[in-house]
Amino acid sequence: MDLIGGFIEKAKRLKKRIVFPEGMDERIQRTAERLSREGIAKPVLLGKKKDVLSAVEQRRIDLSGVEIIEPLDSPEMPRLVSLYCANRKGVKTGVAERLLKKDIIFGGMMLTAGMVDVMIAGAASTTASVIQASALTVGYKPGISTPSSFFIMVLPDGRILFYADCAVNIDPDFKQLAEIGVTTANSFAKIMGQQPKVAFLSFSSKGSATHPLVEKVQKAVCAAKEMAEGTVMLDGEFQVDTALVEAVAKKKLKEPSSVAGQANVLIFPDLNSGNIAYKLTQYLAGAGAFGPVLQGFAKPVSDLSRGAKVEDIVGISAITSCLT
């Protein structure tokens, strides 16, 4: 079974409730139809009920088993408004009411209140607005200050690597880089059910070069080790061949490392390197790239690229269900 097929089977067992704030988007409606029909998840669409129903009728989409919620009409609105005010100190009720009228904020608050398990948005809005809405509603995991993202890279030989952060943080400082490493390790463990081995990448292997850019990665490794308190196997700074190839690791490193030569999570020093690397792997090595999956939020939220197809959104729904 392929990777996504595996996630779909796992998601079927978990049967998570997923809120889609962009309920008017045709791809979202078709995704909801499939998730519900195949029992992959329980989708909830947000939007004006009348408009959604007439759109699906025209498009011949069957949403019979799918819940549609109109935020402005929802009896839950007052409860979610007061929950918002309680979580974001100093925000007036009138301001919260205006924010909750936005479907994506309402969806985020449904997630915060435990009415759903996952939120997926971004088919019609930017990554930045999905991140902002998620930060205001679900907030970050304890100890996390920076939302980030990862890609699941599936190589032609079947090997699976996680790459981070290839989509969100442009130039993370060493603390942010440490957070990205630890968060991606946790995501890997949750999704793959295996031990993550996290390599922090650079153009230097354990001090073979001296430069402020190398120093940033070295400081990130120290900070990440402190954050993880020995629970995660992580190491660096490594050149990518040292991280992936045992023979190179043996040659280049003076001291043994539990990660070098066998890394399955690659942490890139900035968005230049991360974004370039994932696309190189995708196009030159013929790897499958799934993501970006957002991480660092207190509850699972996923962004979609605006060009995402129904197939992609079903896959992301299954992957994100596995993150709960």
């Binding site: 974001r88 925000v91 007036k92 009138g94 301001v95 919260a96 009411e97 205006r98 924010l99 904020i105 902002q132 809405a133 930060a135 205001l136």
Partner: peptide, 12 residues
């Protein structure tokens, strides 16, 4: 993240 709240506060 505060910019969304600021816009809503002006509207209110």
């Amino acid at each position: 993240v505060q910019s969304l709240e600021l816009v809503a506060a002006f509207e209110d």
